[in-house]
Write a protein that binds this DNA or RNA. Structure first.
Lengths: 225, 225
DNA sequence: CCTCCTCCTGATGTCAACATTCGGACAACT
DNA sequence: AGTTGTCCGAATGTTGACATCAGGAGGAGG
């Protein structure tokens, strides 16, 4: 996840399986509501059910899937209520992350943010895949949380990160032009404020940034699913 | 939790194991830093290693234990940095939960809060176990999150709830008299503000409530563990 | 005496088979 | 016809055995 230190931490098959399934969900190969059967996944991924099970538990922690007692695991739906919940929480988390990062971020993190904005600008100018722009968007906020250096805060962010990723992908489908036009400028402003801005202004802008995303997504959603 | 329908949700052995181990940690039978060996727990609880493993994963999601690749699972330490992280995040979450609950809470939740304050007052007057007072403290905030009705927000709260429980137990050890004296009044004020208070005042008081707890805990901790 | 290498021990990671449970199909009953 | 009770299939929950790995004890070499 764009960490500074690759750390080479050896991961188990459970993490591997979680990554594969997560990628499949974000790619749309598992549409919202799809059932994720353990035996099926185990056979397809070439690992045991135990590992798949552990990987699915991880995705459940990320909020990408939901499961119940003897009721299997399914991909979450994207209802207006879900979007509302995630974005309201994200606004509070982003506000805290931004104000904290404003205090403690070092130059390395700040320049990394500038670099990401530059990449976003290049990507938005071209007409490439929208997926890549969304990935850069998420990576930008990953950096802010990393800069804040609060492990629990980062964990809370990671608990909604994947859901947000899924939502943002729908957002570009719904409002592609609008998204491309504003995404670069909004992030550039955030990067500037993080380097040398008033804390209160930064807090307000961080919340507004989320609110902007929420509204543009809700506009393209069915009102009552 | 206090839903109209008890739902009688049947739980698996993993949940059972997680509950047992969590209780043991909060009781002090597993002190901070203690190693939680899977085979040992499995034998002692009378279940298989797989179930214990899944239960430990759940406790890891709650932040009560930490684990690494082939490095086992250990109870978290209580360092000043950990306390700082949890309370800073909690302040942001509590602020959001309180302001949301102020808008959407129904009478049932509000009267439940009053009832909890009354119980706390009765408990603080007597000289019973401090554990019970802390449990009521946590339950009070559980109610606020339930009243807010945001599932993701509640999940974020539950990710630090058990750690907070652990910290608060240390807090009463460190500053027992101070805690008893203030805990009832602070919660009573929060309950009042939730029923009919200015939102901005409520938000400020919610953050101050957390800050008060943080400082009184940090005061009784070793400076550099 | 210190350093490095090797091996060993105890633990976790992984697996495939067994037991339990949910949900719907089907039929009997009212 | 609508409802209730029963049965069956398929998926999950659980288990014990096997494979793999981290960390330290011990000894050879410097």
């Amino acid at each position: 996840m764009s960490s500074v230190l690759p750390k080479a931490a050896r991961r188990g098959l459970a993490d591997e399986a979680a990554d594969l399934v997560r990628a499949a969900i974000l790619d749309g190969r598992f549409p919202p509501g799809a059932a994720l059967r353990e035996v099926e996944l185990a056979a397809h991924l070439g690992v045991s059910r135990g590992s798949v099970r552990e990987g699915l538990a991880r995705l459940e922690r990320e909020g990408l899937v939901r499961g119940g007692w003897h009721r299997g695991t399914t991909v979450i739906e994207v209802t207006a209520e879900d979007v509302e919940e995630v974005y309201v929480l994200r606004a509070a988390l982003d506000r805290l992350a931004a104000t904290t990062a404003r205090r403690v971020a070092d130059e390395e993190h700040l320049s990394a943010l500038d670099r990401l904005v530059a990449e976003m600008a290049a990507e938005a100018a071209g007409s490439g895949e929208a997926h890549r722009l969304v990935a850069l968007d998420i990576a930008f906020h990953d950096r802010i949380y990393a800069a804040a250096g609060n492990g629990r805060l980062t964990a809370a962010w990671e608990a909604i990160r994947s859901q947000l990723h899924l939502f943002q992908l729908r957002r570009v489908d719904a409002a592609r032009a609008h998204y491309r036009a504003r995404v670069v400028e909004e992030h550039r402003e955030l990067a500037t404020l993080l380097r040398s801005g008033d804390v209160r202004t930064l807090a307000r802008r961080a919340e507004e940034h989320v609110d902007s995303a929420r509204r543009s997504l809700l506009a393209g959603l069915p009102p009552a699913p």
